[in-house]
Every structure is written in C-alpha cells, then in structure tokens.
C-alpha cells in the first residue's frame, strides 16, 4: 500500500497494518509520540487496533523535552 507518512509518500509492502505495527516497521522507538490517521488522533491505547489503509495520511510526531 501507499500511504502519506508525515507529509511524505511511503510505500509499504503490506495491504494494511496497525499503527503499532507501523511504529515497529519504521523503527520509531521514541517514548512519547502523538499518532494520527487522516487527522484523527489515535491514542496510545488504540494503536494496537487502529488500522492504516492504502491512501491514508498518517502522522507520527516525536515529542522531545526542551522549552
């Protein structure tokens, strides 16, 4: 499938996957993340179930301290 991940096109060798699977696939290991599918917030506890499909816009934002 082809998705838009963080505003960039990404081709993934699967028909669908959950947000948790995407994080593992992309090696996103930050402790604190905000995840969205098509602009809708996917909470931490929903990531194992929330499915990503072809054409979806996915956002994975890493949160780091400093301000």
């Amino acid at each position: 499938m082809k998705i838009i991940l963080n505003n960039r096109e990404e081709i993934i060798d699967r028909d669908r996957m959950t947000v948790s699977e995407l994080l593992e696939y992309k090696n996103f290991t930050f402790k604190l993340l905000v995840t969205k599918i098509n602009g809708r917030l996917v909470k931490k506890e929903e990531r194992d179930k929330a499915q990503i499909h072809d054409g979806d816009h996915v956002t994975v934002l890493h949160l780091v301290s400093g301000g």
């Binding site: 402790k31 604190l32 905000v34 969205k36 917030l41 909470k43 934002l61 890493h62 949160l63 780091v64 301290s65 400093g66 301000g67």
Partner: peptide
C-alpha cells in the same frame, strides 16, 4: 517537558479541535 507537550497536543485535538496550536519541538 515532552509529556506536557503530549498532554496539550492531545487535549487541543480532542477538546478544541478547531483551534490552531503552535508547538515547539
């Protein structure tokens, strides 16, 4: 702190969805 950044981003997205939030990360 990152955890506070997470808190305000998720709060604004859930409860003030039409509000624009400018974050520094």
């Amino acid at each position: 702190h990152a955890r506070e950044k997470e808190m305000i981003i998720t709060t604004v997205m859930e409860k003030l969805a039409d509000k624009m939030l400018i974050t520094g990360i």
